[in-house]
Design a protein around this nucleic acid. Sequence first.
RNA 1: GCGGGUAUGGUGGAAUCGGCAGACACAACAGACUUAAAAUCUGUCGGGAUUCGUCCCGUGCCAGUUCAAGUCUGGCUACCCGCACCA
Length: 827
Amino acid sequence: MIGERYIPRDIETKWQKNWAESNAFATTVDRQRPEFYVLEMFPYPSGKLHMGHVRNYSIGDVIARFKAMQGYNVLHPMGWDSFGMPAENAAIKNGIHPASWTLDNIANMRRQQEELGLSYDWDREVTTCQPDYYRWTQWLFLLFYEKGLAYKKQAAVNWCNECNTVLANEQVIDGCCWRCDSTVVKKDLAQWFFKITDYADRLLNDLSELKGWPDRVKTMQENWIGRSEGAEFSFDVPELNEKIPVYTTRHDTVFGVTYVVLAPEHPLVEKLIAGKPQEAQVRGFVDRIRNLSEISRTSTDTEKEGMFTGAYAVHPFTGAKVPVWVANYVLVEYGTGAVMGVPAHDERDWLFASKYSLEKRVVVQPADQELVLAEMAGAYDGSGVMVNSGEFSGLDNEEGKSRIADWLENKGIGKRRINYRLRDWLISRQRYWGAPIPIIYCDKCGVVPVPAEDLPIRLPEDVNFTAGSVSPLAQAESFVKCRCPKCQGEARRETDTMDTFICSSWYYFRYTSPHSDNAVFDQDKVNYWMPVDQYIGGIEHAILHLLYSRFFTKVLKDAGLINVNEPFKNLLTQGMVIKDGAKMSKSKGNVVSPEDIIAKYGADTARMFILFAAPPERDLDWSDQGVEGSYRFLSRMWRIVAQYAPAIKDMPAGQTLGELSKEEKELRRVLHYTIKKVTDDVSQRYNFNTAISTIMELVNAMYAVRELGSSLQAPLLREVVSALLRLLAPFAPHVTEELWSEVIGEGSVHKQSWPEFDAAAVQVDEVEVVLQINGKVRDKVVMGVGLKPAEMEKTALSQDKVRQLIDGKTVVKVICVPQKLVNIVVK
RNA sequence: GCGGGUAUGGUGGAAUCGGCAGACACAACAGACUUAAAAUCUGUCGGGAUUCGUCCCGUGCCAGUUCAAGUCUGGCUACCCGCACCA
């Protein structure tokens, strides 16, 4: 019996319980059906779901349920990215152990996900902070180590004083920590790195394979990888018997070099200044620059500063002596840490040379103007003809580039080189709540990886959490002290843990065989399910997580563990949830809690609103009244189905569709138009907002024939209600399940097949055709659909209104678009 | 500076291949029902003019292509995002 009013609370808990008990969304390998892997980015268990999560999961759930109804074998899992700083901070602040804080949060958030009615296969849940997961994170570290892709080196690294740990380049946003926003400083430390730069070319080139990714994300990755083609060669410093290698992309301007300049951290600086009058001054300058923060150091607005070292280098093409400088604008990490100075053709060099009165030489002349130094206001970095360039003068500069590179290579003093902006991934963290790096230091044997059979290296539970610069693990004597796996002598464990982004770089593989305890994953299963067919998440991971995951996938492919080259075939980046013009955040005080919305209106309404208010990629404006509207729609749908229910239930078995009245025909036409439109919107465009609006129109059409009541045929009503419930099921799974079980009553609506479109139902005999005169709509007339253009023209010209309007004018041309319009061009 | 994106009623948005701009909602207003309110159902709803037939204007701005432009081309403006002294 269907109640008069739609009251979500009871039916939602009822069906959630039913789905959980029947394992409704469990999946196994099935080679009879096509597979589809839909994945939402797993959350950090911060404590509660926010609207961004609700949006993310609602989108994924619609796709998963829709694909399942279309006959796909759907994998739709969920898990927890559960290592990381907030848990440890909570431990320091409140004295709660990170493990219990994290597990409590997981339990709470999982309950909220269940309340949203999400169709996850919970048997596949993964939790990265648990030993059965991080054991394999550690195993992967060993794999990287074995392949030479994990190494430890002393380097100037990003350090966050607030978080007391180092950070990867990708985690420094505008010179600040991605997590706590405090200023990042440079520290000289020995740290573990993953050699992502080895994969720079493939990470860049394979972006072209990713047809299902937004251009925005691909462009961001492209910029981040930052490939450039150039040449590397050296300037000799004969007095010291040293060479200064430089990298340039403008070797065509090499005859314009008037100085060479090193980064302050360049290893040659000390040697160059030794014994020189300016030694102390240069050293002071270098120290001052090194102590500046990353942001003030690298900003383009920062004024260029430098000092002459007192040394001279020899120009390899002209043999001229050029001064060697040190300057703040040269970065030690990029290229060779030294550059050639060409003031006339590089903006930075121009500013620098102008400030310190260094010589400028024009060596490229553009076609349309004559460059004269005295008249130049800045550098000219465009193309042109090479001048003052010895044997290369007269060449087009692009041609000259390659001739100069040939010259360097032939003489053996330089070579073509490709450079990347991408740096190796700094993966060690001086924190407790992460996967311990499985490395042992032995005085006798050196750096020794932990044997795979000794994994996991468990986090000790009994440690001291106090704010301070030393990681709790480093203070845990029982953890640090160990035996060397090689010589059995006394040794020490690595006390750094891994960046949490490592845990999240491979979780989507683990879902395919989450309980595997003899391998990182089952190869058969991983190859059956991967790649992820549809990945959904926020744009904030455009570089970080998505680049790291691509890197991991390529390494695992090279190791022969998987056969895919890219992890995520299609990527959907959802927009933010906005309220009152700003992203929902505690500090802005504009947060709407999913819990409150579910309590008041139910999960179906929350899902409907969030999918209806905007297409998924766009930012979504939260509106309390809009939510009300979605609830009203579900109620309205409920009432009309309830009204037609008795006729459908009383219908004798086997009764088929009879002759349709005009109104019935129209209702059936709207139904099949809706099936077509919703199917297209969901499968081809992911435009859930227009899919929902079309379903609303179907419900409106059902209301329009309501007064015909019992004269409507039961088989038609059944067809309409059955299709309506199935179309709406992915969006509002509870209310449709309830009505399905009451009215149609065959199993679960979510196990039904997707409604089939009957093209015959939408066929009409007549259409309204627009009549235009000179492109302006002047009239509309109903015409038969089969009308030929000549007949359309004749009909159009015979209309009274048209005749009046063209009276006394000459018809120049008539354009007829069948079933659409007739445009009469007159003079 | 380089790269990417967005701009449509009071609001969110629709118009998918160049063919009726504003679907579907929200808000507002009106009517029905009600003692009344809520809920519900029905209707109006870009701006201006109107003899109520219609007519003119209108998709950030300026040009262009076309019988026809929110949609294509060129040039701007504003805002958002990413990278940025990468030689």
